[in-house]
Design a protein around this nucleic acid. Structure first.
Lengths: 255, 255
DNA sequence: TCTGTCCCTTTGTCCGACAAAGCTAGAGCG
DNA sequence: CGCTCTAGCTTTGTCGGACAAAGGGACAGA
């Protein structure tokens, strides 16, 4: 027979966790706004009445979660979590789960098509200008696989941004972080890869400008299929992602 | 005139960060496999030659990232990051960025349709059994908004799981975590909401079983449009997500 | 006005310490 | 001989204090 529930479970959490939770609550519910300074460690020691070591452990938790960060003078302040930083956590998780490029390809097909549809519908002049600027840089970089790959990654970030849908922006990021680093390998290995990539970008911008949804979707599909064909010349789609990750993650962290 | 780049920036990172990075590297490149024990704090003190406080700060960083955790006896071991935990970080970020329900709805439409397509194509018998079990529970819970909302959330997790695409599973999670908590409010406020929800689930399972892609997509769309209509009776789609979040995030953390 | 210096604050790190909780192994008992 | 129970040992969470390095600000001097 079940015992009548007389007591609620006691909230037993280490002090550093409670510190982190308390600060997180203030940020999430808006009493501390992004940019606002958190006090110094010593201030927090006074406010919470715990040791500085405890405060510091709590701060590490929040820093890692992207809720607070330190400026040049190492002072603490609340901040808006950056998508790309959070997404790199997810990318890392995907690597550890040993997802395959097939999964990555399929998910990206969905997410990038949705991005372009949003962009076709809602891109602003400013978005278009950014995309045009990116295209110019891509054209200049067509001979350099590393730079071109970087431009390509940025291009798709800009398309997602042009969709004006931040949920989509965030959702596509983890896959993209794993997906686009391979672009460098592909344009290195496949001679016509660079020009085709730039041509696809040109068509995509054109489709956005003309608000031509069909063309946008079509060229996004082609663009990704190009990637797939190029990738399959190098490796199997069913290979897991493992290797490519490390160097990219490190580069991202330095930014 | 730009100065000739004679020196590279020095890699100046605090010790706790280096500790975290070193352990992360070992996990990500597979030398430490999920489940493997990390040493005790004292072991790490010896290995890294730094103070225990420093080690502990590094550990907090990794714990927050989901790479290591403590079992019942509080011993450290590597582990596979749980999607839902990481996704709750992203959900929090979306809240802070004040995304609107319209963005959430649009992105979810894309992601859930992709999930059902994958599920129709690749669901296993086991997936179907899980979905059927969920449906049974939903039918029993049709009078209780809170339980029904929980079943609904789980249902869509199971559909994503049935798609056998872990990238998709992960990509949809942040939006879903914000999206489905509202279901409770809706089935509370709209009388026919509960039965319609369960009926939609039934049709979706049926579509998966019959491998009927058209039906799957159709019913997913209807299901989401139902949500939207229900939601618009309560609030505007252009409202930002803020409020619903806090209680849900807290509930998720306890799990 | 600019610059160099001194001082104060803050952070990163270290050391040592202790209570609470888990784990281990030996003492005591059947 | 096998079982239980208790007394340690270990490990974590927390505390207090300490110090060097780096930033920032005030202040005097050119």
């Amino acid at each position: 027979m079940p015992i009548a529930p007389l007591f609620r479970p006691i909230d037993i959490a280490p002090a550093y966790q409670k510190v982190a939770d308390a600060i997180e609550r203030e940020i999430v519910n808006g009493r501390i706004k992004p940019g606002d300074p958190i006090g110094t460690e010593h201030d927090l020691v006074r406010q919470f009445g715990v040791n500085r070591s405890t405060i510091r452990e709590g701060i590490r938790v929040l820093e890692e979660g992207g809720l607070i960060s330190r400026d040049s003078s190492r002072r603490l302040h609340a901040c808006l979590p950056r998508y790309s930083k959070l997404a790199s956590r997810l990318s890392r998780a995907l690597v550890l789960h040993e997802v395959t490029f097939r999964e990555l390809y399929e998910a990206s097909m969905t997410l990038e098509v949705a991005s372009i549809e949003g962009a076709v519908e809602r891109a602003s002049e400013e978005n278009l200008a950014e995309l045009a600027g990116n295209l110019a840089r891509s054209e200049a970089a067509v001979g350099s696989p590393a730079m071109l790959a970087e431009c390509d990654a940025e291009f798709h970030v800009l398309v997602a941004k042009a969709s004006q849908n931040r949920v989509l922006q965030l959702a596509r990021e983890p896959a993209a972080q794993l997906f686009y680093p391979t672009t460098e390998m592909i344009v290195t290995g496949v001679a016509e890869g660079g020009p085709r990539l730039v041509a696809a970008h040109r068509h995509l911008i054109d489709a956005i400008r003309r608000r031509d949804r069909e063309a946008g979707v079509l060229w996004t599909r082609r663009h990704l299929q190009d990637w797939r064909r190029g990738f399959e010349k190098i490796a199997s789609l069913d290979r897991s992602v493992e290797h490519m990750y490390m160097e990219h993650a490190q580069a991202a962290r330095r930014r």
